[in-house]
């Protein structure tokens, strides 16, 4: 069972009532909204009516609202890496250890950030 993933790409402002009615029947109310409908002649005919306004893809299964939201989430711009004994981290440990040794305290645990 495959589905049409229909995205309203262009607004229907100022277009005939029938065109807007087709969009409403597809469940499209605002631009960039995504709806899923099963592949059938009925829905294909509705898409044909508004083919200038939508972008479609054929997908295997519809996405849930949450999945759609997650797919739109931008990259955070930072990544939290788990601390591990990389060369960089070891150098920092050694450096802080040396500083502490210079200060006269030989403790090396608890200095990893």
């Amino acid at each position: 069972m495959s589905y049409f993933r229909i995205t309203l790409h262009r607004s229907a402002i100022g277009l005939p009532k029938r065109t807007r009615g087709v969009l409403a029947a597809l469940g499209l109310h605002r631009r960039a909204q995504v709806v899923f409908h099963p592949v059938s002649a009925q829905f294909a005919g509705m898409i044909m009516k508004v083919k200038e306004l939508v972008r479609i893809e054929e997908v295997e299964r519809p996405m849930t609202k949450r999945e759609l939201h997650e797919s739109r989430r931008p990259e955070p711009g930072f990544w939290v890496e788990t601390p591990r004994a990389s060369s960089f981290g070891m150098r920092r440990v050694l450096a802080t250890g040396q500083q502490q040794q210079q200060q006269g305290e030989g403790q090396q645990e608890g200095v990893r950030l």
Binding site: S2, F4, V39, S40, I47, M48, K51, R55, I56, E58
Partner: peptide
Amino acid sequence: DQVVETLSNALAKKGETLKSL
């Protein structure tokens, strides 16, 4: 053209036809 092609391919897979298409 892309929309029409996608519709056509999807319906052809199901074996359905559409007059307007």
